[in-house]
Design a protein around this nucleic acid. Sequence first.
RNA 1: GGCGGCGUAGCUCAGACGGUUAGAGCGGGGGUUUCAUAAGCCCUAGGUCAGUGGUUCGAGUCCACUCGCCGCUACCA
Length: 654
Amino acid sequence: MAEGRLYITTPIYYVNDQPHIGHTYTTVLADVLARYHRLFGYEVKFMTGTDEHGQKVQQSALARGLSPQQQCDEYSQRFKEMWSLFEIVYDRFIRTTEEDHKRTVQALLQKLYDQGDIFKHTYTGWYNVSDEMFISESDVTEEGKQSGRIIQVSEENYFFRLSKYQDWLARYINEENPDFIQPESRRNEVLGLLRQPVNDLCISRPKSRLSWGIEMPFDPDYVTYVWVDALINYISGIGWPDSPEFSYWWPDALHLIGKDILKPHGFFWPILLHAAGVGLPKKLLAHGWWTRGGQKEAKTVTKALAAQAPVRHIREMAADYGVGSIRYFLIREMTPGMDQDYSEEMIVTRLNSDLANDLGNLVSRVTKLVRQNFNSQVPAEKDCETDPRGQELIALANGLSDQVRTHAIDLKPNLAVDALIRYVRSLNVYLTECEPWSRVKQGDLGKRQAAFCLVVALKGLYRVAVLLHPVMPRKMEALLASLGCSIEKDGLNGQFLARDFPEAGTTVPGGDPLFPRIDWKAIEQKIQALSPIAPEQPKGKAGNDASLISIDQFRQLDLRVAEVLEAEKVPKADKLLKLKIRIGEEVRQIVAGVAEFYRPEEMIGKKIIVVANLEPAAIRGLESRGMLLAAREGNQLTLLTLENQSIASGSKVS
RNA sequence: GGCGGCGUAGCUCAGACGGUUAGAGCGGGGGUUUCAUAAGCCCUAGGUCAGUGGUUCGAGUCCACUCGCCGCUACCA
């Protein structure tokens, strides 16, 4: 009799990226939750996969002389290999280029079209090529226009009537299903979005511009675009609309996502489902980011950060510390929903403390004591002299199952792991109090007391190994084997929970240390010895001469030295400063978005570079005639100022 | 600026239906054991629970305000 069903998903990962710690965390978390649910009697279907359509895939395939499908096959395979390495067992790996997925997408589009939720509309506006998104006037940057990244387009496209269902979703989340989006802070964020006017969702691209996509069933000149392709995987993967599989698993669904994709999953996706007449998934869990020094880990890490603590790929860390240990760290250290800062030293500290010192060492001492003093045999009950603390620990071990189940089903595997390690510590304390190594030398009674003490530890370790198996499958299988419990790879099931292991007479084979202590100093030296951080490669497309400009084009810019005379904050704007500047004899006002980085009084007297011949604009109702130059990286910004303060304002810059 | 959240020991964080001496892990300091992976175990941090002012017999725990930080959003020529 099943406890219930769980259809658990990760986002499908875009095939333009290598798997990194973010992908890995989401997928490991899904795997761990799936395994816990199975262990506790749930029927589980776990799906992950890859998102394979879109402009960026088309472009990189082209650049590499491959077909888009070849590009997808290659990258998709990388994800599969990564998940295999990380001991992840999914029930389906879906790819959006698969036929059944395409059919589902088209069926859904047709349904929405037939009922009038999709309409055609001419849109004129700015388009960000690299993000594949239409953007608002305010997101247009000069730099973007210059580089050709932002272009103005006017084209007909299909739109989905998102706004029609906005109020419905707000009610659904706010009143009827307050648990739908977790954690609560993310739920509030979606409610915030829903309170504002929304634009209908553009869901197509003309084939003339993007051919790598799923054709609109009602218009062969168009393909559909990210939302009504990738998101649909969650239902196409279980056979919507006709397969009995679909009604079997839906809506017992849990979508795991990173907080960066909350909007499509918490806003667009529920509305698409509702419009299509499909019920919503039970839960959406948005977890936080792994950060380093407070910054989201990006593909290009700033040099400064890299210099003090070189960043190694999670795969390299797994090679040094073991896959199970990395899985343990990921699960133990992050509270789902919160960001978590980490460094490699933190990882080593955690692993040494919890796994090597507490758990691994306990296994060693217990198995060796049994082997040396009891001929590797688990003592029989009649040969044991019980003690109250030991009996209490056995009872606690049995209670661990409930504790772990509660936490796991509450989607807090970090707490489950914490409870297990606490228990391990209590076993270490018990051994120290009981001193079986002394008692065995103290005659028959002493030996019987030692026997019981070791039986308690063995029972406890068995329980811990079974309950920690979802987190570290291979490692816990090895631990069980060292206790004399043979188990096939991924062969754990609920019966192991019910079992009272070990029985008297079981042979305890022991084994090599499960979690060898990690020498951080050695690892640190190894990391330091790595090749110096390579300078960042410009991201521009290879051979893209269109991004070059002529000297004449450059000369069109009138760059001038200007002196800041006055500066003050613009009311009701966090990022704006109103500046009065002098260019030669001329005094003019500009508005600049630097208030986060410079206080008004810091600005006064500075000699800066401005673009003097920029057409005037009104920002927040204030006239701005010109633009100052500043360098920006991540969340740092610095003004271009003059080294030689004696250069006169108004001087030309070239 | 709007909405939401956070600010607790050196570090990472628990705790907050208001009620005895505010907790854990890690690190640091001291001690102890030898079964064990130089691991274990014991003791040790005296921290204005961001600040101020309230409510209350009594407030990290409720309210208001201030400061700092974060997220979403607006603005960033």
